[in-house]
Amino acid sequence: MKPDFEKLYFQMARIRAFEESLARLWRQGLIPGEMHLGIGEEAIVAGVLDHARNGDGLALDHRSTPPLVARGVDLTSMILEMLGDEGGLCGGWGGHMHLFSRDHLAASSGIVGSSAPLGAGFALAADYLKEGGVAFSFFGDGAANQGMLLETFNLAVAWKLPVVFVCKDNNWAITTRSSAVTGGSLTRRARSFGMPAYRVNGTQVESVWSAALKAVTRARAGKGPSFILARCCRMEGHFLGDPLVRVFEEPVKQTMEIAPPLIRALLAKPLAAAASRCGHVGYIGRVIATLGGEKYLTRRDPISHAGGLIPEQARDRLDREAELEIRDALAAALERKERHA
């Protein structure tokens, strides 16, 4: 089997355009609170969910919009939700971290790791009801150390649940390097529970697609869960307005805020400790540079890779279609919002 690259590219372009429109609304102050975007995760979402069917379950984390876009949830109602409108997907009660679409058996949560047990529950129902459904559980590498997630790995294997665990590995647990707080390897960890584990480049949609095909085929055949570790980039920091990304955007202002207390700490008594403290300052500096710099330095944009898999003409056409679709949805949402203001 071969993927339909144009279809995959189109999904990715829709997701990117949607996320970018959310970023604009957030910057305009029309969306309150935190905003975690899935920019950089498009290939993973599109590659996995190309295998989804109606009736399959979708258990999502705090970057929940891309899978919902891919599964065809109404875009205008999602934008209205972010705007806090009662015509939104959840009546303005959920917001971007708590999006629910019963029609799509799709639920998200802002509690890190909770999408794993939720996905197992969707899979249990699918298995019990014998309707051939599977569940997709999306989470990040930061979640991979949560007890509830590891317990779910075991449960899903013990009960042979038709669930596909998808770890979007962007190297970061908020502002902490995952490697600094994670023991062993995540794929070996998953295998040790007794399920197949695939390690793929999550910026290459065809790699994700192939691994997901194996995982979904296994789940639908009643053979149990699989784990996909898809490496990707976090191109917008942990959330929009991430203070560490802002160091690059407003270097003078942010440095003026961050530096003085650091210098005071460096020079606190006993002064003899200052030498070793320089190493600590260096560590902070390196975290800021790698986290904040990712947006500007990354060369692993999944969209450009996927674009290279299809003819230029098709790419331009699909880009236009995606842009148009998102623009219309946005206009409809803003128009409704205006009308009810």
């Binding site: 930061g142 007890g147 908020i174 502002t175 902490t176 707080v181 994670t182 400790a273 560590y283 902070i284």
Partner: peptide, 26 residues
């Protein structure tokens, strides 16, 4: 979680043994 960055001033003064970043494993 994230105390190295959230409490970076304490981290600089007291170092990684006393200001520890934990995995997301409450």
């Amino acid at each position: 979680e994230d105390v190295t960055m959230l409490r970076r001033n304490l981290y600089v003064r007291f170092g990684p043994r006393r200001v520890r970043q934990a995995p997301i494993s409450e």
